[in-house]
Protein backbone atom coordinates (compact mmCIF):
# COMPACT_ATOMS: atom_id res chain seq x y z
CA UNK A 1 0.00 0.00 0.00
CA UNK A 2 2.71 2.47 1.02
CA UNK A 3 4.55 1.86 -2.22
CA UNK A 4 1.38 2.20 -4.25
CA UNK A 5 0.58 5.54 -2.64
CA UNK A 6 4.10 6.73 -3.20
CA UNK A 7 4.04 5.80 -6.86
CA UNK A 8 0.70 7.42 -7.39
CA UNK A 9 1.77 10.61 -5.64
CA UNK A 10 5.02 10.66 -7.55
CA UNK A 11 3.08 10.52 -10.78
CA UNK A 12 0.99 13.42 -9.49
CA UNK A 13 4.13 15.40 -8.54
CA UNK A 14 5.48 15.00 -12.02
CA UNK A 15 2.25 16.21 -13.60
CA UNK A 16 2.14 19.19 -11.24
CA UNK A 17 5.72 20.13 -11.99
CA UNK A 18 5.12 19.72 -15.72
CA UNK A 19 2.12 22.05 -15.65
CA UNK A 20 4.09 24.54 -13.60
CA UNK A 21 7.22 24.51 -15.77
CA UNK A 22 5.46 24.55 -19.13
CA UNK A 23 3.18 27.38 -18.04
CA UNK A 24 6.16 29.49 -17.01
CA UNK A 25 8.10 28.62 -20.15
CA UNK A 26 5.36 29.87 -22.48
CA UNK A 27 3.52 32.43 -20.36
CA UNK A 28 6.57 34.57 -19.55
CA UNK A 29 7.53 35.44 -23.16
CA UNK A 30 3.86 35.59 -24.21
CA UNK A 31 3.20 37.94 -21.31
CA UNK A 32 5.98 40.26 -22.50
CA UNK A 33 4.47 40.31 -26.00
CA UNK A 34 0.99 40.97 -24.61
CA UNK A 35 2.36 43.82 -22.49
CA UNK A 36 3.75 45.44 -25.65
CA UNK A 37 0.29 45.09 -27.18
CA UNK A 38 -1.36 46.74 -24.21
CA UNK A 39 1.08 49.66 -24.47
CA UNK A 40 0.74 49.96 -28.25
CA UNK A 41 0.40 53.44 -29.74
CA UNK A 42 -2.06 51.95 -32.22
CA UNK A 43 -5.31 52.20 -30.30
CA UNK A 44 -7.35 49.37 -31.89
CA UNK A 45 -4.64 46.88 -30.89
CA UNK A 46 -4.26 48.41 -27.46
CA UNK A 47 -7.98 48.19 -26.71
CA UNK A 48 -8.30 44.69 -28.15
CA UNK A 49 -5.49 43.49 -25.90
CA UNK A 50 -6.87 45.34 -22.91
CA UNK A 51 -10.28 43.72 -23.47
CA UNK A 52 -8.73 40.27 -23.64
CA UNK A 53 -6.82 40.93 -20.41
CA UNK A 54 -10.03 42.15 -18.80
CA UNK A 55 -11.90 38.99 -19.80
CA UNK A 56 -9.14 36.65 -18.72
CA UNK A 57 -8.54 38.37 -15.42
CA UNK A 58 -12.24 38.91 -14.86
CA UNK A 59 -13.34 35.27 -15.10
CA UNK A 60 -12.26 32.27 -13.03
CA UNK A 61 -9.47 30.14 -14.39
CA UNK A 62 -11.72 27.15 -13.78
CA UNK A 63 -14.32 28.53 -16.19
CA UNK A 64 -11.62 29.18 -18.81
CA UNK A 65 -10.44 25.60 -18.48
CA UNK A 66 -13.95 24.31 -19.07
CA UNK A 67 -14.53 26.58 -22.06
CA UNK A 68 -11.25 25.74 -23.73
CA UNK A 69 -11.63 22.02 -23.12
CA UNK A 70 -15.29 21.56 -24.06
CA UNK A 71 -15.84 24.62 -26.24
CA UNK A 72 -14.39 23.41 -29.56
CA UNK A 73 -16.20 20.07 -29.22
CA UNK A 74 -19.52 21.80 -28.63
CA UNK A 75 -18.98 24.04 -31.65
CA UNK A 76 -18.27 20.94 -33.74
CA UNK A 77 -21.46 19.18 -32.61
CA UNK A 78 -23.50 22.31 -33.23
CA UNK A 79 -22.10 22.67 -36.76
CA UNK A 80 -22.79 19.00 -37.49
CA UNK A 81 -26.39 19.43 -36.34
CA UNK A 82 -26.84 22.41 -38.63
CA UNK A 83 -25.43 20.48 -41.56
CA UNK A 84 -27.81 17.59 -40.83
CA UNK A 85 -30.66 20.11 -40.79
CA UNK A 86 -29.70 21.10 -44.31
CA UNK A 87 -27.68 24.27 -43.76
CA UNK A 88 -24.28 23.99 -45.37
CA UNK A 89 -21.38 26.19 -46.26
CA UNK A 90 -17.59 26.12 -46.15
CA UNK A 91 -17.23 27.58 -42.70
CA UNK A 92 -19.73 25.15 -41.20
CA UNK A 93 -17.95 22.23 -42.85
CA UNK A 94 -14.76 23.39 -41.22
CA UNK A 95 -16.37 24.02 -37.83
CA UNK A 96 -17.89 20.55 -37.96
CA UNK A 97 -14.40 19.07 -37.86
CA UNK A 98 -13.75 20.68 -34.47
CA UNK A 99 -13.53 18.31 -31.57
CA UNK A 100 -12.34 18.46 -28.01
CA UNK A 101 -8.65 19.15 -27.54
CA UNK A 102 -6.36 16.69 -25.96
CA UNK A 103 -6.86 17.21 -22.22
CA UNK A 104 -3.33 18.17 -21.35
CA UNK A 105 -3.14 20.47 -24.36
CA UNK A 106 -6.37 22.25 -23.41
CA UNK A 107 -5.06 22.59 -19.87
CA UNK A 108 -1.81 24.15 -21.04
CA UNK A 109 -3.58 26.55 -23.41
CA UNK A 110 -5.80 27.80 -20.61
CA UNK A 111 -2.98 28.11 -18.08
CA UNK A 112 -0.59 29.83 -20.49
CA UNK A 113 -3.18 32.38 -21.64
CA UNK A 114 -4.37 33.05 -18.11
CA UNK A 115 -0.91 33.49 -16.63
CA UNK A 116 0.41 35.42 -19.64
CA UNK A 117 -2.30 38.00 -19.03
CA UNK A 118 -1.40 38.37 -15.36
CA UNK A 119 2.32 38.51 -16.19
CA UNK A 120 1.69 41.07 -18.93
CA UNK A 121 0.20 43.47 -16.41
CA UNK A 122 3.23 43.02 -14.19
CA UNK A 123 5.55 43.65 -17.13
CA UNK A 124 3.55 46.70 -18.15
CA UNK A 125 3.73 48.13 -14.66
CA UNK A 126 7.47 47.54 -14.61
CA UNK A 127 8.13 48.97 -18.05
CA UNK A 128 6.01 52.04 -17.45
CA UNK A 129 7.76 52.74 -14.16
CA UNK A 130 11.11 53.30 -15.87
CA UNK A 131 11.64 57.04 -16.27
CA UNK A 132 11.56 58.43 -19.80
CA UNK A 133 15.02 59.86 -19.25
CA UNK A 134 16.49 56.36 -19.49
CA UNK A 135 15.12 55.90 -23.01
CA UNK A 136 16.21 59.39 -24.00
CA UNK A 137 19.72 58.91 -22.64
CA UNK A 138 20.06 55.76 -24.75
CA UNK A 139 18.60 57.46 -27.79
CA UNK A 140 20.94 60.46 -27.73
CA UNK A 141 23.87 58.05 -27.48
CA UNK A 142 22.77 56.60 -30.80
CA UNK A 143 21.35 53.29 -29.57
CA UNK A 144 18.54 51.63 -31.48
CA UNK A 145 15.16 51.12 -29.80
CA UNK A 146 15.93 47.41 -29.42
CA UNK A 147 19.31 48.12 -27.87
CA UNK A 148 17.78 50.60 -25.45
CA UNK A 149 15.15 48.06 -24.43
CA UNK A 150 17.42 45.08 -23.98
CA UNK A 151 20.57 46.79 -22.71
CA UNK A 152 19.12 49.59 -20.59
CA UNK A 153 15.46 49.08 -19.73
CA UNK A 154 14.91 45.33 -19.33
CA UNK A 155 17.37 44.81 -16.45
CA UNK A 156 15.75 47.61 -14.51
CA UNK A 157 12.29 46.22 -15.23
CA UNK A 158 13.32 42.76 -14.01
CA UNK A 159 14.64 44.19 -10.79
CA UNK A 160 11.36 45.96 -10.16
CA UNK A 161 9.08 43.06 -11.02
CA UNK A 162 10.74 40.27 -9.05
CA UNK A 163 8.53 40.72 -5.96
CA UNK A 164 5.15 40.76 -7.79
CA UNK A 165 6.34 37.98 -10.11
CA UNK A 166 7.31 35.74 -7.23
CA UNK A 167 3.82 36.21 -5.81
CA UNK A 168 2.18 35.24 -9.06
CA UNK A 169 4.46 32.26 -9.60
CA UNK A 170 3.79 30.92 -6.14
CA UNK A 171 0.07 31.22 -6.83
CA UNK A 172 0.66 29.18 -9.98
CA UNK A 173 2.08 26.30 -7.94
CA UNK A 174 -1.22 25.98 -6.12
CA UNK A 175 -3.42 26.72 -9.16
CA UNK A 176 -2.09 23.55 -10.77
CA UNK A 177 -4.62 21.67 -8.64
CA UNK A 178 -7.33 23.02 -10.97
CA UNK A 179 -6.13 20.56 -13.60
CA UNK A 180 -8.65 18.03 -12.34
CA UNK A 181 -11.38 20.09 -14.00
CA UNK A 182 -10.27 18.65 -17.32
CA UNK A 183 -9.31 15.32 -15.77
CA UNK A 184 -5.60 15.83 -15.70
CA UNK A 185 -4.64 14.28 -12.40
CA UNK A 186 -2.05 16.20 -10.47
CA UNK A 187 -0.75 15.47 -7.02
CA UNK A 188 -3.66 16.68 -4.92
CA UNK A 189 -6.25 14.66 -6.82
CA UNK A 190 -4.11 11.57 -6.54
CA UNK A 191 -3.88 12.07 -2.79
CA UNK A 192 -7.56 12.71 -2.36
CA UNK A 193 -8.39 9.47 -4.14
CA UNK A 194 -6.98 7.51 -1.24
CA UNK A 195 -9.47 9.04 1.18
CA UNK A 196 -12.36 7.60 -0.78
CA UNK A 197 -10.81 4.30 -1.76
CA UNK A 198 -8.81 3.37 1.33
CA UNK A 199 -9.70 5.90 3.98
CA UNK A 200 -6.11 7.16 4.07
CA UNK A 201 -5.55 10.74 5.19
CA UNK A 202 -1.77 10.88 5.36
CA UNK A 203 -1.27 11.21 1.56
CA UNK A 204 -2.97 14.62 1.88
CA UNK A 205 -0.40 15.74 4.43
CA UNK A 206 2.21 14.34 2.16
CA UNK A 207 1.06 16.70 -0.61
CA UNK A 208 0.91 19.63 1.78
CA UNK A 209 4.58 19.01 2.50
CA UNK A 210 5.23 18.84 -1.22
CA UNK A 211 3.57 22.22 -1.83
CA UNK A 212 5.37 23.78 1.11
CA UNK A 213 8.73 22.50 -0.07
CA UNK A 214 8.09 23.60 -3.64
CA UNK A 215 7.03 27.10 -2.58
CA UNK A 216 9.86 27.23 -0.05
CA UNK A 217 12.42 26.54 -2.75
CA UNK A 218 10.84 29.18 -4.98
CA UNK A 219 10.87 31.69 -2.14
CA UNK A 220 14.56 31.04 -1.55
CA UNK A 221 15.25 31.31 -5.27
CA UNK A 222 13.47 34.65 -5.59
CA UNK A 223 15.16 35.90 -2.45
CA UNK A 224 18.48 35.00 -4.00
CA UNK A 225 17.63 36.78 -7.29
CA UNK A 226 16.52 39.87 -5.38
CA UNK A 227 19.75 39.87 -3.43
CA UNK A 228 21.78 39.36 -6.61
CA UNK A 229 20.22 42.45 -8.10
CA UNK A 230 20.69 44.52 -5.01
CA UNK A 231 24.14 45.61 -6.12
CA UNK A 232 22.55 48.80 -7.41
CA UNK A 233 19.64 51.03 -6.53
CA UNK A 234 17.23 52.72 -8.88
Amino acid sequence: MFIQVNLSLLEGFITTIQIFALTLLFALPLGLIISFGSMSKWHPLKWLVKTIIWIIRGTPLMLQLIVIYYGPGLVGVWAQDLIKAGVSNGILQWLATWHVFDRFFALMVAFVINYACYFSEIFRGGIESIPRGQYEAGQVLGMTKTQVFFRVILMQVIKRIVPPMSNEIITLVKDTSLARVVMVYEVLWNAQRFIKSDGLLWPLFYTAVFYLLFCGILTLLFGWIEKKMNYYKG
Partner: peptide
Protein backbone atom coordinates in the same frame (compact mmCIF):
# COMPACT_ATOMS: atom_id res chain seq x y z
CA UNK B 1 23.35 58.33 -37.24
CA UNK B 2 22.58 62.02 -37.69
CA UNK B 3 21.86 62.60 -34.05
CA UNK B 4 25.39 61.51 -33.20
CA UNK B 5 26.50 64.99 -34.29
CA UNK B 6 25.02 66.10 -30.99
CA UNK B 7 25.65 64.98 -27.46
CA UNK B 8 23.35 65.73 -24.57
CA UNK B 9 23.89 66.10 -20.85
CA UNK B 10 20.58 66.10 -19.00
CA UNK B 11 19.52 68.06 -15.98
CA UNK B 12 18.75 64.78 -14.19
CA UNK B 13 21.93 62.92 -15.32
CA UNK B 14 20.01 59.83 -16.51
CA UNK B 15 22.90 57.45 -15.89
CA UNK B 16 22.13 53.76 -16.33
CA UNK B 17 21.81 52.54 -12.72
CA UNK B 18 22.68 48.90 -13.38
Amino acid sequence: IKQLSFGMVFQSFNLFPQ
